[in-house]
Amino acid sequence: MDNRLEKIVQVLQENAGATYEEFRGELHIFIHAEQIVDVLTYLQDEHAFTLLSVLTAVDYWPQENPRFHVIYQLTSLTQNMFIQLRVPVNASQPRVPTATGVFDVANWREREVADMFGIEFEGHPDPRRILMPEDWDGHPLRRDYPLGYEEPQFSFNFEEIDLRKPYVKE
């Protein structure tokens, strides 16, 4: 990998106990949940990673420890560098400190992750649901949430689905 990125990885390994892996030329660094805000501040101030491109999560159910990985992708415009941070989160305590103090975009992106996965971001100024209706139950992007697939109506089961479907008469 790039030697500028190597230096960053070394610093993070020494100070934050981070591990890393590479895949198809990309660098993924694993950070613990408590240190993510410090790492983001360090990268933004010292190495000019000013753009937070992606803030999302992946669910590895039925694996419980860790169940989620929260993913941050940072871009440095001046140095044209990209780096991906992954925060493993357990199923029993899905909590990560909020990054809204560092990047303003985290406000909406963390609301989206909390809505879709149920991960709580401590200290978030506005924890409301963003994409689903306010009174929705459940977190849709979890792997144990059903897709909500409805049986398609072909000609062989036309009448029986017709009777079940809630048509509006007036």
Binding site: P140, L147, G148, Y149, E150, Q153, K165, E170
Partner: peptide, 20 residues
Amino acid sequence: SCGGVFNNYAIVQGVDEVVP
């Protein structure tokens, strides 16, 4: 008309469930 490509939790499968 029928939910189209999206057969999932988020889309009403055909707007005739809501209006005639």
